[in-house]
């Protein structure tokens, strides 16, 4: 008697879990389809090659793509050295008890939780105002650099930590200086982790909107230099859907472009993280 009641509950729960999960999965697929579909069916190659006309209602996104590329470029140019240096120092030169190391780690954890709009406020105050860079690609890139730094550092750290300590012992036994050890041993082995961090960081930077609206600005013409204002793809989508009546069909195309780009980056990250990182550690 008890047993049958219990198995009834069991059946019921199994049906509910399966039913709800499949429903949820289908709605997720539907959601992705609804976002990608309209852009996919209307986009043509010249969309990538022509400049936006009439506030983006017609024309393409060539200048937008260039601005996005420049913003991400500035971001990486600043974030890579700082991120790499910090990650190496945290993993190779500090112990878990070190006061400075612990606090830098905590500070980075907090940084990872700061909302993107607050990065925008900070970037606006520091880069646009105090450093006098104005609404420009360089301000936007620097703001994004602060934002992607925690992700970058975390992935590089994971990459470096996966190197077995035997390697370091052998290098020390051979009398290699710390510098040569880093240059000839640690860095080459840490490349997969660095690449994963970079791809994750680029993904985050491409997706970001709130921090860019008032640091790199709205201007949609081709930027002449990195101190010019430039509109990123995500800001373009925002502007087309909120401020430009009749911009919907072109917004769909931009959504399609950004989603394909992010899908590509996402797949690349997964591939690298799964294959390269795992193989590296197993083979050594």
């Amino acid at each position: 008697m008890i047993k049958s009641a219990q198995s009834k509950v069991e059946y019921l729960v199994t049906y509910i879990v399966w039913g709800l999960s499949i429903l949820l999965l289908l709605s997720m697929i539907f959601l992705i389809y609804k976002m990608v579909g309209p852009g996919f069916s209307t986009i043509r190659w010249d969309y990538f090659l022509s400049e936006p006309l009439n506030s983006g209602r017609s024309g393409g996104i060539s200048s937008i793509l260039i601005s996005t590329l420049l913003i991400v470029g500035v971001c990486l140019f600043v974030a890579i050295p700082i991120g790499l240096g910090t990650a190496i120092w945290l993993t190779e030169f500090t112990t878990s008890q070190s006061f400075l190391g612990q606090n830098i780690r905590r500070s980075l954890d907090i940084l990872a939780g700061v909302p993107s709009i607050v990065f925008g406020l900070f970037g606006n105050a520091l880069f646009c105002r105090y450093l006098g860079l104005g609404f420009s690609i360089i301000s936007g890139g620097l703001t994004l650099a602060c934002m992607v730094l925690p992700i970058l550092i975390r992935s590089i750290e994971v990459g470096i930590r996966s190197i077995p300590s035997e390697h370091r012992f052998s290098a020390s036994a051979l009398g290699l200086s710390t510098f040569s050890q880093l240059y000839h041993l640690i860095l080459p082995l840490a490349v997969p982790g660095i690449v994963v961090g970079l791809v994750l960081g680029i993904g985050r930077a491409v997706a970001e909107t709130a921090a860019l609206v008032f640091t790199s600005g709205y201007v949609d013409r081709m930027p002449s230099s990195i101190s010019d204002s430039g509109r990123s793809l995500s800001v373009h989508i925002y502007d087309l859907s909120m401020n430009v009546p009749g911009g919907e069909s072109n917004a769909y195309k931009s959504v399609f472009v950004i989603l394909i780009l992010l899908f590509f980056l996402n797949t690349l990250t997964m591939f690298l993280a799964d294959r390269l990182l795992a193989r590296k550690v197993m083979n050594e």
Binding site: G83, G85, T86, W89, L90, I104, I110, L111, A125, L149
Partner: peptide, 19 residues
């Protein structure tokens, strides 16, 4: 390396200070 990490670590303080 140490100064790079200090920059990285000081960022969240810097943000708080500026805000």
């Amino acid at each position: 390396l140490r100064s790079l990490s200090l920059i990285g670590g000081a960022l969240s303080l810097l943000i708080l200070l500026f805000i």
